[in-house]
């Protein structure tokens, strides 16, 4: 499945294969800190059973999904929409072998597990907040 990227950051109109270039790619935030992996994508609704009339607008990526979306992608099923952890496509600034965001990961929903583990466990162990060495 190919799709035109939207909204258009610098490389507008480049053709990407969602399967090959987006899915399972590492997502880095604006400071190059890993946030997550692209577990799935959320597209504008297309009815998979209906025939698509020619000339209708192509589906557009709304957001990158993570969290429970990985489980359902592996084992099947579909999580309820409110349980999806989304990174809005508008936050994406670049797509290459990694996907870069234009925002810090600190405030993204996708970072809550990292923040929870950090604040509840790791930062409480002495030395957890210091540079190594």
């Amino acid at each position: 499945m190919t799709l035109n990227r939207k909204p258009p950051p610098p490389a507008a109109g480049r053709i990407l294969d969602a399967q090959l270039h987006l899915m399972d790619r590492q997502v880095l935030d604006v400071d190059a800190v890993p946030v997550t992996t692209v577990d799935d994508l959320e597209l504008t609704d297309v009815d998979p059973n209906a025939e698509i009339p020619p000339g209708s607008p192509a589906p557009v990526i709304i957001s990158l999904l993570t969290g429970p979306a990985l489980g359902t992608r592996i084992f099947g099923g579909r999580p309820p929409s409110r349980r999806l952890v989304r990174i809005p496509w508008t936050d994406v600034s670049d797509v290459s072998v990694v996907i870069r965001l234009g925002v810090s990961g600190e405030h993204l929903d996708a970072g809550w597990v990292q923040r929870w583990v950090r604040d509840k466990i790791i930062a409480r162990i002495p030395g957890g907040d210091h540079d190594p060495g």
Partner: peptide, 8 residues
Amino acid sequence: MLKRQGRT
């Protein structure tokens, strides 16, 4: 949603 096919 995308599903990866033929990969099992």
